[in-house]
Design a protein around this nucleic acid. Sequence first.
DNA 1: GCCTAAGTTCAAAAATTATTGAAACTTCAG
DNA 2: CTGAAGTTTCAATAATTTTTGAACTTAGGC
Lengths: 173, 173
Amino acid sequence: MKPPSEKSAGRRPSRPSYEPLQPHEIELADFFVRMAGILGVPRSVAEIYALLYVSTGPVDFDHIQGRLGISKGSVSQGLKFLRDHEMILSVKEPGSRRERWQPTPSLAASLVALLRSQVLPALEQAQPGLQRVLADAQARGSQPEVIERLSRLNRWNSRALELAPLLLPPPGA
Amino acid sequence: MKPPSEKSAGRRPSRPSYEPLQPHEIELADFFVRMAGILGVPRSVAEIYALLYVSTGPVDFDHIQGRLGISKGSVSQGLKFLRDHEMILSVKEPGSRRERWQPTPSLAASLVALLRSQVLPALEQAQPGLQRVLADAQARGSQPEVIERLSRLNRWNSRALELAPLLLPPPGA
DNA sequence: GCCTAAGTTCAAAAATTATTGAAACTTCAG
DNA sequence: CTGAAGTTTCAATAATTTTTGAACTTAGGC
């Protein structure tokens, strides 16, 4: 149900109208939005990913904006996020500056990368602090139970940090 | 630097003043706050847990409120959250209505439970929708690549649902 | 080299989420 | 029973996060 005329043939469509998401597309988007929410990824980002995910070929900037009905800024920021986390790839058209986007082959890899990027920095930054907290508790002769808790926390943190690189090698592998 | 007098001996302390968190406690709280943030758990909840975690014995409502400097409402809601997710346990004093709280023995188990409670419902609710999306795509003869993606998503969802109960049995085991 | 399509930036507005605190409820010690 | 300690509730407010859009930058076609 597109607005009447498209000003005849291939004329520059001054405001090409895009179809809103179809029910089946909405359903998928909802799923991604929910999952993303758990990791604190904003709705618009999840929607963009969902759109690329159900789309048959690569999708360009204006289509994303048009079909999702969101602002240029959101599209730009959303694509940046997805790019930074290596969740999407771009294909350049031959005689045009325009980029067209599609999801990275493995969603699994994308998710792991995303998790890493959130959890790792926290673990790394915490390392020295946690050790200090433990040392402190020992120094002041806290209850053995508390010492035990804090030790376990330290061990976990260390093991997580050792395991992390195996889970998915940092950029470049 | 506590407000001058405590009205001498063991008199009912009309507004007992609590020490603010010590540096080592703050350090630990920061760690928990950050980790909690990844899962979208609010700061105040993480702080409460951290306080119980470094404390030598069980801690009561008023101490939590006093030491963290947060409102009654926040403490109540925070404890509710932690209780609901089985991350803390209460010990009742003999001749008093007051409850005192301490962390559940296994933080690991707590975390798994927390994750479950967020992810599982999403997976469950998504199940039928995802199947419909796939069926739809097949019906309309979408690109094989898209079909493949959607199939994989469905398979994952199913496997995750199968695995979930093994990861940690639902309330009662 | 220009000029404009394509995309980015970022301050302000909107939307969402967390916290507060006063009132209401509950439970038990007396 | 009754009173008040102990806790919960929830509407209002505060804090945070997301989205918008207009001004700006950049790249590349001509």
